[in-house]
Simulated scan of single mutants.
Amino acid sequence: MSEHPHATLVREAYDAFAKGDLAALDEVFAEDIRWHLPGRNQLSGTHVGRAAVYEMFGRLMTVTEGSFRIEVRTVLADDDHVLALVGVSARSGERSFAITDVHVCRMEHGRIAEFWDTTDDQYAADAVFG
């Protein structure tokens, strides 16, 4: 059985993110994407639009001294949503984490229209993200 096209698209988005390829992400993200991050840190909240999401990505890399990494473990998809089980690691100064996240994407017209992050250790993420 072949993978759902949305699963393939999201896997390609993770690869583009890892390479810093914003042009490739432009093809995957809706122009008015809504990106929701939990927690109580400088990255938390809802970021609306590609420019706001890319600005947050820049802050993420600055805060984590370029150490932020995502390892995709499993991707499940249907016509409306994609769920990705991922390992996430990062450090900032003496603080670091290696946690498991579930990312949920709402798809619209073949693009990611909305993204939610959930984590197994929000306290660790907040400590690193400040």
Rank of each mutant, 00 (worst) to 15 (best):
L85C: 03
L83R: 12
A98N: 15
V104K: 11
L76I: 14
R91L: 04
T74W: 13
W116L: 00
R95F: 09
V104Y: 11
V88R: 04
T74H: 15
V104F: 12
T74A: 14
D101Y: 09
T74G: 07
S92R: 11
E108W: 07
A77D: 00
E114L: 05
V102A: 04
F97T: 07
L76R: 06
L76H: 10
R111W: 03
C105L: 05
R95P: 10
S89H: 09
I112K: 03
R106C: 02
V102T: 02
R95T: 12
G110R: 06
E94K: 12
D80Y: 09
G93D: 04
C105S: 05
H81P: 10
D80C: 04
D79F: 10
S89P: 02
T118Q: 08
C105W: 08
C105E: 10
C105R: 05
D79L: 09
E108D: 08
S92A: 13
E108N: 08
E114R: 10
D80E: 15
D101L: 07
R106L: 11
V88E: 14
F115C: 00
L85G: 04
H109V: 06
L76Q: 01
A90V: 10
G87M: 08
S96Q: 14
G110A: 08
L76Y: 01
V86I: 14
A77V: 07
E108G: 07
G93N: 01
D78Y: 14
R91H: 14
R106K: 12
F97C: 04
D79S: 10
C105A: 08
A84M: 03
H103R: 06
A84E: 05
D117T: 11
H81W: 12
E94F: 05
A113Y: 02
H109Q: 13
R91K: 14
D101C: 12
V102Q: 01
E108Q: 12
S96H: 13
W116S: 01
V82K: 00
A90M: 09
T118V: 12
H81G: 03
L76C: 11
R111Y: 06
V75E: 00
E114M: 09
V88N: 11
M107H: 03
C105Y: 10
V104S: 12
L83C: 10
R111G: 02
T100N: 05
D101E: 15
R91D: 05
A90T: 12
G87Y: 03
G110C: 07
F97L: 11
E94W: 03
G93F: 03
V104I: 15
L76K: 00
V82I: 04
V86D: 02
L83Y: 14
D117K: 14
L76N: 02
C105T: 03
R111I: 03
L85V: 08
A98R: 15
D78M: 12
